[in-house]
Lab assay of single mutants.
Amino acid sequence: SISSRVKSKRIQLGLNQAELAQKVGTTQQSIEQLENGKTKRPRFLPELASALGVSVDWLLN
């Protein structure tokens, strides 16, 4: 799922939720909701993929 991929990649990069949120241009709460499965397809998906160094396709599939 996107939530597990985001969380595992974030941890692999040594980032906390607030640091990832800053790179993406969103809030820590938005990252938390995404990782908890409350958000399925965030509006900041391209920025998120870029910050994590992955493709949008990788996040979604």
Rank of each mutant, 00 (worst) to 15 (best):
S3Y: 05
T39E: 11
F44Q: 04
R43T: 14
L52M: 05
R5Q: 05
S3Q: 09
V56I: 14
L20W: 01
G53T: 04
V56W: 07
P42E: 04
L52N: 00
E19I: 05
L20M: 04
K9G: 04
K40T: 14
N16H: 07
L45F: 06
L48Y: 02
E19P: 00
L48A: 02
R41C: 15
S55Q: 07
E35I: 02
P42Y: 13
G37F: 05
S50D: 12
I2E: 03
A21E: 01
Q29D: 13
S50Y: 13
I31F: 02
D57A: 13
L15C: 05
S8N: 12
S30N: 13
K7A: 10
L48Q: 00
L59W: 02
N61H: 13
E47W: 06
Q28F: 09
L60S: 07
D57C: 13
K23H: 07
L52H: 00
T27P: 06
L59H: 00
T39F: 14
G25C: 09
Q28H: 09
L15H: 03
L20Y: 01
N61C: 11
R41A: 11
T39R: 09
P42C: 14
Q28K: 13
Q17I: 11
Q12M: 11
L20A: 01
L20G: 01
V24R: 00
Q29V: 11
L15K: 03
N36D: 11
G53E: 08
L20I: 05
Q29S: 11
V24F: 03
V56G: 04
L59Y: 02
E32C: 09
A51E: 05
K38E: 14
Q33W: 14
E47P: 04
A21T: 01
S55I: 04
Q17Y: 08
L13S: 05
G25S: 05
I2R: 03
Q29F: 15
R5Y: 04
L59E: 01
G25I: 02
S3L: 04
F44D: 04
A49K: 01
K23G: 04
S55E: 09
Q22P: 01
D57P: 07
L60G: 05
K9A: 10
K40N: 12
P42K: 04
R5S: 04
I11H: 09
K23T: 08
W58N: 03
E35Q: 02
I2V: 10
R10T: 09
S4K: 10
N16E: 09
Q12R: 09
R43A: 14
N36C: 09
P46N: 14
V6K: 01
Q28G: 06
A21R: 02
N61G: 15
